[in-house]
Amino acid sequence: MDKKDVQKPLHVQVAEKVIDGLRAGTAPWQIPWDASGMPFLLPYNFQSGKRYKGINALSLLMAGRDDPRWMTYRQAEESGMQVRKGEKSMLIQFVKTTDERTKRDASGKVMHDELGKPIKETTALRHAIIRNAYVFNAAQIDGMPKLEREIPGVDWQPNERAEKMIASSGAKILHEYSGKAFYSPKNDTITLPYKDWFSQHHKYYATLLHELGHWTGHPERLNRDMGNSFGDLLYAKEELRAEIASMIMGQELGIGHDPGQHFAYVESWIKILENNPFEIFLPQWMLNVYSIISWILKERSKNQ
Results as ranks from 00 to 15, higher is better:
residue 246 S to V: 01
residue 153 G to C: 08
residue 37 G to L: 08
residue 25 G to T: 13
residue 4 K to S: 12
residue 102 T to R: 14
residue 115 L to E: 06
residue 131 R to N: 09
residue 215 W to M: 07
residue 35 A to T: 00
residue 264 A to H: 08
residue 99 D to P: 00
residue 14 V to W: 00
residue 262 H to T: 06
residue 158 P to H: 04
residue 34 D to K: 12
residue 13 Q to M: 01
residue 228 N to C: 02
residue 199 S to D: 05
residue 173 I to M: 11
residue 296 I to N: 08
residue 123 T to M: 11
residue 88 K to R: 07
residue 217 G to C: 10
residue 281 F to I: 02
residue 148 E to R: 13
residue 244 I to A: 05
residue 161 R to Y: 08
residue 202 H to E: 14
residue 55 I to V: 10
residue 86 G to M: 13
residue 173 I to L: 08
residue 237 K to Y: 01
residue 67 D to I: 06
residue 273 L to F: 15
residue 125 L to P: 06
residue 134 Y to G: 09
residue 39 P to A: 03
residue 74 R to S: 04
residue 268 S to N: 14
residue 248 I to Q: 02
residue 274 E to R: 15
residue 273 L to P: 06
residue 129 I to N: 15
residue 55 I to T: 02
residue 234 L to T: 12
residue 44 Y to H: 15
residue 161 R to T: 04
residue 54 G to R: 12
residue 255 I to W: 09
residue 186 K to D: 13
residue 273 L to C: 09
residue 185 P to E: 14
residue 260 G to I: 06
residue 45 N to M: 07
residue 215 W to H: 03
residue 202 H to F: 14
residue 190 I to D: 10
residue 26 T to K: 12
residue 301 S to P: 00
residue 171 A to R: 03
residue 109 K to A: 15
residue 167 A to I: 11
residue 135 V to S: 09
residue 62 M to Q: 14
residue 103 K to L: 14
residue 68 P to K: 01
residue 108 G to V: 03
residue 3 K to E: 12
residue 59 S to D: 01
residue 244 I to P: 00
residue 178 S to D: 09
residue 117 K to L: 06
residue 110 V to S: 08
residue 147 L to Y: 05
residue 21 G to H: 05
residue 20 D to G: 01
residue 5 D to V: 07
residue 115 L to T: 01
residue 294 S to I: 00
residue 213 G to Y: 10
residue 42 L to Q: 00
residue 284 Q to E: 15
residue 121 E to W: 01
residue 222 L to C: 04
residue 75 Q to P: 05
residue 261 Q to W: 11
residue 181 A to P: 04
